[in-house]
Design a protein around this nucleic acid. Structure first.
Lengths: 366, 366
DNA sequence: GTTATTTGTGCAAACGTTGGCATTACATGA
DNA sequence: TCATGTAATGCCAACGTTTGCACAAATAAC
């Protein structure tokens, strides 16, 4: 009963906001016979205002559903209360989940989100950045494009005073907050798991070598190999320079691996796009997984268990990553004094074992 | 050679924009000894301005990378040059692709996108709407939540003068532009395909009955059944009231179908979320697809061919739907006189046959 | 009962743009 | 020559907010 009442209340209030021409500070001032500055101050108790007036103003404002005009506030402070978001691609299980995490906080804190996608292209990334800058964003959240090797454009923005937070694909030489998965640890877990399952010739199809995530994942991979006394084989590492935006790139990589002698007995794919591409090629070639070759993916698929076969994955906490990225950004935006001590948050990745990495039945000792 | 030069050029220009404190109309006016109104008018040739002055202003503006302050323009016109986007969920293969389509046009036309998700909840939808309204959006693109049965909140916004365009899940009794898939035709194709493959007891797990997409899909389904002389069986239709946000909902539906006598020999799932849920349940029960039961999905998965088994789908043109939705919206926003004749665009859906609907080998005549 | 100090309030400018109106200069027609 | 017309430009207010400064009134200190 009570619940219904509350809900109705909310709805009615919202309707009112949507319908009525919204009132301004001036209206309140006129109605209450005050100056607008007093009203403004009463609303945000920013200054010494007597209690009775403050109350009167608040009450009137509430009753009439006063909402500050965001456009005016923006113009005044030259702050649009908006956050730029620059990422490789929206329709991507990982990034769309990150966006969702970011959106959840942005809405709550009344920040607009301006989303742009680089589609892994350096040029588009630079263009997007100046676009966002023009829209006077208060801050930026980025995951850099696969093609990007220089980070000057981010530095330029930062020097102009716009706070930047990187997630997942970070620009390592830019000093700011960042949130990443424990790529090294994740790759280590993945590789170790494969070794434990009896695989020895473990290949990796991954993002471009210039990206920090790539080197980290390579490091974790090497670490696990070394621990097991397996020699590192350069030929088993294939890079996708466009982050797999181009299927051919993945196909070429996969086929090169299959053609190697000896061919790998397991593949570690570094992103969902790459995983899809690789699996597509393997299926096309009628290869059995894991009998012919095992596959493990760094992934964010919503249901890897319905794949053929159910895919073993290293799952990244995408939603949480988004949440934390925007939290860090808001911290930078809203802090009074400039922040110099930056946080590099590392979220752990989880190994979820499914069938694509079943025991290697043709175990060998080579 | 030429290309490199051009590219460098773009980058340098963009850097300049990002670095320098951007100049204003006043700066130009001062430098050229003109009044701001003249400068303003020269820049948008809105008024009679002599050619030499126009040229001088334009040149100066270009040289100094003048970009109008969007915040100021917004305040003046009470138009934020921003578009609200309200959809059930961002991390969803269909919607994220739609967003991508919308984004591609929005960026090009310098519109900000304010994205909100309803998570299929009516309450959250209403709240999102007033949130968007507060942010003085110029227009709204919506796909309504599964829970929604009343559309008053949209009407309120519309009456306030904000143009609205619906896509996919439309509010049928609101008079405005919309873009949908040919749901009826798609469902017809799906059902007919199943029939042709030898299935007779065809079930449907679908969205709530209040949604237009649901009734349309049901209509197409019935049409195909009737054409084949198969009686419609109410028990074979299961609705997911929360659009499948809750896995239990799907599980219950699927299990109810499997428990029916006679159990269906094929299931038509109406969205990716539902498809995932249904397949998960079927796999958990070790049912073979299509031997034990066939599955076809209304879908937008990026790679249904790597599923177990490769999934037959009715594919919706999601990106294109997004593009058309925003095009229609911009048409409404930018039109001088009020538009009264509304367009209901219907994009056709494509049947892609894969293994999950292989021939029914235990063909029967019942 | 003066003079400081505090407390509360109002005035006005500013953010960058735009557009109505006023003004100027010059040309046209009677 | 004077009125009228027109083209080009300038002036100024407005959009809604915030905030430094001024000022009045009330309180405190001497």
């Amino acid at each position: 009963m009570k619940r219904v009442y509350l809900r109705m209340n909310i709805i009615i209030r919202n309707y009112a906001i949507m319908k009525s021409e919204s009132i301004t500070i001036k209206d309140i001032a006129k109605a209450l016979n005050l100056s607008f500055s007093t009203v403004s101050r009463a609303l945000k108790d920013s200054y010494k205002i007597s209690e009775p007036i403050r109350r009167k103003v608040r009450e009137y404002a509430n009753e009439h559903h006063y909402k500050p005009n965001l456009l005016a506030q923006s113009l005044r402070g030259n702050k649009g209360r908006s956050i730029g978001l620059l990422l490789p691609a929206i329709p991507n299980s990982f990034f769309s989940e990150v966006i969702s995490g970011i959106e959840s906080v942005a809405n709550e804190k009344d920040y607009k989100l301006i989303i742009t996608q680089s589609l892994e292209s350096y040029d588009k990334e630079v263009r997007s950045l100046s676009y966002l800058s023009w829209h006077s964003i208060d801050g930026l959240i980025v995951s850099v494009a696969a093609e990007t090797t220089s980070f000057e454009h981010f530095k330029a923005l930062q020097e102009k005073g716009t706070p930047v937070v990187f997630f997942d694909r970070i620009a390592n030489d830019i000093n700011t907050h960042s949130v990443t998965t424990d790529n090294r640890g994740g790759a280590y877990k993945a590789t170790k798991h494969l070794i434990e399952q009896g695989y020895r010739r473990i290949a990796q199809i991954t993002s471009p070598p210039a990206l920090f995530i790539t080197t980290e994942r390579l490091a974790g991979y090497k670490e696990a190999l070394q621990e097991a006394g397996i020699a590192f084989n350069e030929n088993y590492i294939k890079y996708c320079d466009h982050g797999g935006m181009d299927f051919n790139e993945i196909q070429t990589a996969t086929e090169a691996l299959l053609a190697a002698t000896p061919a790998p007995d397991a593949i570690f794919t570094a992103s969902d796009r790459i995983t899809i591409g690789t699996l597509t090629v393997l299926h096309k070639r009628k290869m059995k997984i894991p009998e012919d070759i095992a596959v493990i993916g760094f992934s964010n698929f919503s249901a890897p268990e319905i794949f053929n076969p159910p895919l073993t994955t290293i799952k990244q906490p995408a939603f949480e990553m988004g949440r934390q990225a925007i939290e860090l950004l808001l911290q930078l935006i809203e802090s009074k004094r400039p922040i110099k001590q930056f946080e590099k948050r590392v979220l752990s990745a989880e190994l979820i074992v499914r069938e694509s990495t079943g025991k290697n039945k043709r175990f060998y000792t080579g």
